[in-house]
């Protein structure tokens, strides 16, 4: 491997060493290289600057760049770990690592908590959950009476907010997902186990000696 020297890396600011990234994540070096193929295709879809901006992530998720979406924005904010307004390759790999089937459950629980704690207060509050429910209804063009939304919120907080203080803290979230494991289903991407066959072209671009894997 490594027969062809890639010339594209210079266009990717913040492109981190695949060996380094593999050592920090559940991915092998080959898998990090395969993820680079995915990263390249997403990061060049609107502006070919080697970074993923919000519009490019929207486009990759919805195949439609015009569709503003609360949840896609939230995912973007969490992937943009350095809060630069763009996702570089290192951010991308480290965030996707949480979604790896072998990633620690604890990381998945913490990530999902942050995802739903829209205002970053350290609690998932009722008005945040209501905001997300309304966003979901708009997205799916479903209509529910406000009364029904309030009933869903009552039921949710009855079950999750065990100390009944009106907000869900991290330990309550921990217990709630333990009782409702299906809530973490979105936190695992089976594709990540098989990434080298999904994006096989990395083989031709690899700069890494197989021996390093």
């Amino acid at each position: 491997m490594g027969c062809f020297q890639s010339t594209s890396r210079k266009q990717f600011p913040g492109h981190e060493d695949p060996i380094q990234l593999a050592s920090q994540t559940a991915f092998s070096v080959s898998e990090v290289e395969a993820l680079f193929e995915l990263f390249k295709s997403i990061s060049s879809s609107v502006i070919d600057d080697g970074l993923i901006n919000k519009e490019e992530l929207q486009l990759a998720l919805f195949k439609n760049r015009k569709k503003e979406n609360l949840f896609a924005n939230r995912i973007f904010d969490l992937f943009d770990a350095k809060q630069k307004g763009v996702i570089d390759f290192g951010d991308f790999v480290r965030a996707l690592n949480v979604f790896h089937p072998n990633a620690p459950q604890e990381d998945k629980i913490n990530f999902s908590f942050k995802l739903y704690d829209l205002d970053g207060t350290g609690y998932i509050e009722r008005q945040e959950v209501k905001q997300m429910l309304i966003a979901l209804l708009c997205e799916s063009e479903m209509k529910l009476a406000d009364e029904t939304i309030e009933l869903i919120l009552d039921k949710t907080f009855m079950e999750a907010d065990t100390n009944q203080d009106g907000k869900i803290d991290k330990s309550e979230w921990h217990n709630f997902v333990a009782q409702n494991p299906s809530l973490l289903r979105i936190m695992t991407l089976p594709y990540l186990r098989d990434i080298t066959t999904t994006f096989p072209s990395f083989v031709f671009n690899s700069e890494v000696d197989e021996i390093a894997t």
């Binding site: 979406n69 739903y116 979901l136």
Partner: peptide, 27 residues
């Protein structure tokens, strides 16, 4: 419809396509 009340809010929210990152892998 009374059906959604039997679900908790997070089960509903987690059906959003914006949270479904598997779309990233669809070419």
């Amino acid at each position: 419809s009374a059906a959604p009340v039997t679900m908790n809010a997070f089960e509903l929210i987690s059906t959003s396509r914006g949270l479904n990152l598997s779309s990233l892998f669809e070419k």
